[in-house]
Design a binder for these strands. Structure first.
Lengths: 334, 334
DNA sequence: TGCAACATCCTGAATCGTAGTCATATGCAT
DNA sequence: ATGCATATGACTACGATTCAGGATGTTGCA
């Protein structure tokens, strides 16, 4: 690999001059610049980023820590984040944790090691303390990690309430919601509390199905859907994330239930998946691109040392109403 | 940030000793090691990766260049690649090109700049020459980039033939396949040639619909599906990638055609999306995880200087047969 | 005209933080 | 005293940037 030294020697100038030409700063005579430029071309020289990074103490890389990038929600989030980061001049590193704490710890180290300038984390496994002791730029998606770390989330309570209301309006009497681990302290769990509560207020039976997570594999969701179909196969309302919702629909259909005549369903997230079923699936949509933008902006501000005043930013969910919550014909027998 | 110097001073030893403790090499007395260790703990020291990288002339980062990571195919590919890379001790950088040549050029520069140790490219826009002049570790997915750059792809011809045969066996008489730009020299275009040819051999009318790519957005696919439904809405067989297939199904259903009674369809790729429709969608499945593994292994070999003898690796497609190619009842009137 | 003041142009050396080479210094056995 | 294993620190390379400062050229003003 050719270095700036080689270029300097080849152009019969000092390294500082080459550097000035490269960075277009300071005084350089026109013909000297030309000499340097042609030396650069001749030697096919490209400045070494590692050396630059060492000097400037920045890498221009941001790590996105997520359970796994193949999950539609995180794929779309990562995608949007990459765009935003690219615009700001940053590269994106992806870090799948598979919900393993030690992976998360490992990735958190990247920041201490100065391998990345900042981290956007979308996982919820590690203890808060570990995040807090890394006193460097971090932004959290859907998780409160103490006072120092800004976090971004949608109004999940509203999302849960909307979902509940949609099923109630459709005339559901016995419903089920699919949840992740309820103990995990993430704002996104709020929707399940609200959902349950609203159902209770309307005296509607509300079952919970705890979805164990083993990675984003079809078989896991298919198994879960099968279990639900077995144990809760004749309810009239369901509330689940996109992935679970679409899998559930096909499983219930395979069991002979007509979609969306026999059962109503509301999906949550609004990824591409939620647009696939026909008739259209009613979905509570998270503004994934916006979430990513906000995360990136917050992070870049922190990296650049700007004081981040707002520690918590909440965005709105929207409703994409389809035919999966069309009311049951009135007067139907239970 | 604390440096190795600080640790050395704090422990009253030389930097070399600290380095030896860190890297567990050379002779260090047990109590000296302890002194150093406790200094490291006290100062909360972590070695700076940038400096290490500069010294060792490697970053331990691999770039994956793809059109965009939100597309299910690339999301699943990237996911699998990240796992494989992590196992080999590498970090993954994602680079969305949006099919813009200048982005691709920019990302290719990362390699010259020594910001990454290697590149896996899954895009097809840039001229081959630009790749060839970067004489560093590159592996291509689904594209032949000259003799020096190994490439990995599935047997698309077989895939195209299988798809054609499935529709023929189902009794289709007039079919349509959705293609990308046919001029682009990617092995994956081979399936369309074969598909067309097989159809011709069976005297079946085969239409082509050229899908213009503007990014992985629902609206684009929805628009395309709408156009197909308008102009080719009453054919009896379709062949398209997962994304297009599922969108097409819902659009044709919305037009009143019964799936899969009125028309047959074969999907290509085998991402999660292809598992969503009910009744099940017949799909030509690419072994995406395997493709990623092979790409990663080839790349790491190249990075580590091992001679890569096999310049081209072809994997097999498999058939996941669903009900979307169940034969039309015999004797139906055209 | 003389020369201070300033702008222009360029170089060498120091710097960023780590790793490894080399030289040196112990202790212990022969 | 010699040899060897053990133990340690000063120094320098990695490649780019930047600072201090030297060498010009140019202007302003007595």
């Amino acid at each position: 690999m050719t270095t700036i030294q080689d270029v300097a020697k080849h152009a019969h100038v000092g390294v500082a001059t080459v550097s000035r030409v490269l960075n277009e700063c300071g005084y350089v005579k026109a013909d000297t610049r030309e000499k340097v430029m042609s030396a650069i071309r001749e030697l096919n020289y490209t400045p070494n980023e590692m050396a630059r990074n060492l000097y400037h103490k920045k890498t221009g890389i941001v790590a996105i820590i997520i359970p796994e990038v193949s999950h539609p929600y995180f794929a779309e989030f990562t995608n949007a984040a990459e765009i935003a980061l690219f615009r700001k001049g940053y590269q994106t590193m992806i870090c799948n944790t598979w919900r393993e704490q030690n992976y998360e710890t490992y990735y958190l180290e990247l920041l201490k090691k100065q391998r990345v300038d900042g981290i956007i984390t979308g996982v919820h496994t590690l203890d808060i303390e570990q995040y807090q002791e890394v006193n460097r730029p971090i932004v959290a998606l859907d998780r409160q990690l103490g006072d120092q770390i800004p976090f971004v989330a949608v109004d999940h309570e509203k999302g849960g309430r909307m979902a509940a209301q949609l099923l109630i309006n459709a005339g559901c009497k016995t419903v089920l919601q699919c949840t992740g681990h309820r103990k995990v302290s993430t704002p996104s769990n709020a929707r399940h509390e609200v959902f349950e509560q609203v159902m209770k207020e309307h005296s509607i039976v509300c079952h919970n199905y705890l979805l164990k997570w083993n990675g984003f594999q079809y078989s896991d969701y298919a198994d879960a859907a099968l279990k639900i179909a077995e144990n809760f196969g004749n309810l009239d309302g369901y509330f689940a994330t996109d992935v679970m919702a679409v899998t559930l629909i096909q499983t219930l259909e395979a069991k002979g239930r007509k979609y969306p005549e026999d059962f109503k369903i509301v999906a949550y997230d609004g990824t591409y998946l939620s647009r696939v079923p026909y008739p259209k699936l009613t979905t509570i949509v998270q503004p994934i691109d916006q979430l990513a933008d906000v995360c990136v902006n917050l992070l870049i501000d922190r990296i650049q040392g700007k004081p981040v005043e707002k520690k918590c930013i909440q965005l709105e969910v929207t409703l994409r109403e389809g035919d999966s919550t069309k009311p049951f014909p009135s007067g139907r027998g239970k």
